[in-house]
């Protein structure tokens, strides 16, 4: 399938760019661990399970934000987006590839961050990890899309959290629910629904973000 081949070619490029520039992933890692430490001093040494889970989700959303805000910055600075837009590929592949790259960075940061969280605060349940994985998909899909919008504006870095956080509220609800509820099934289902719904909207409208 040519769509998948284009996505692979573009995602490979995005990962390669990060590998060369190495500015996003280390920043995300450092940020998420620092956030945990700050939280420890903000809430004391033994916060309730609910509070600690809240911390985890705030940390995930803001860490993701850090990476997603930069997703389209290289394209913007070197104006390479024009090159991709000119190519005879479905424009939504650009968004899919960016989302995949963002997911890879966020996933890599979490591979470190979740065990650290377990060490500092509480051990995470299986459903909490499932919630994190499902939430990551939605965060990266919506975040990469909004990153493309944000780089087209003058305010850029300032705008990204403003655009993203209202849309991240349902993700946080689903994620916290999956982490602490006695029956996390409906929260996981809600996250799946969110991912599906917003992915379709992003996929259908991305063309308009990068063209006139």
């Amino acid at each position: 399938m040519t769509y998948a081949r284009d996505v692979v070619a573009l995602a490979r490029k995005d990962l390669l760019l990060e590998l060369r520039a190495r500015d996003t992933l280390p920043a995300m890692l450092l940020f998420v661990v620092s956030t945990f430490v700050v939280f420890h001093f903000a809430v004391g040494s033994s916060p309730s399970r609910l509070a600690a889970n809240g911390l985890l989700w705030v940390a995930i959303v803001f860490t993701a934000l850090l990476g997603l805000g930069r997703a389209f910055v290289p394209e913007r600075e070197q104006r390479t987006l024009d090159g991709l837009v000119l190519a005879p590929v479905d424009r939504s592949t650009i968004w899919v590839a960016k989302s995949i790259a963002a997911l890879a960075f966020l996933g890599a940061a979490e591979v470190v961050a979740l065990p650290v969280y377990g060490l500092f605060f509480h051990r995470l349940s299986g459903s909490a990890v499932a919630g994190v994985v499902l939430a990551d998909v939605g965060i990266c899909a919506v975040g990469a899309f909004l990153g493309a919008i944000a780089v087209a504006t003058r305010a850029r870095d300032l705008l990204m959290p403003l655009l993203f956080l209202p849309l991240a509220i349902p993700i946080v609800v689903g994620g916290v629910g999956a982490s602490v509820a006695a029956s996390p099934g409906r929260y996981l289902g809600f996250l799946v629904l969110y991912d599906a719904l917003f992915s379709v909207v992003c996929w259908a409208t991305f063309e308009f973000v990068v063209t006139e």
């Binding site: 573009l10 490029k13 060369r20 070197q78 104006r79 024009d82 090159g83 005879p88």
Partner: peptide, 27 residues
């Protein structure tokens, strides 16, 4: 084929990698 003011190539990639990417996208 469009040549603009900007070269539309990635500075962090090599010449080969840039052209390989565009070659794939243009099939």
């Amino acid at each position: 084929g469009y040549l603009g003011h900007d070269p539309l190539v990635y500075r962090e990639l090599t010449a080969l990698e840039n052209l390989d990417l565009y070659g794939r996208l243009y099939r």
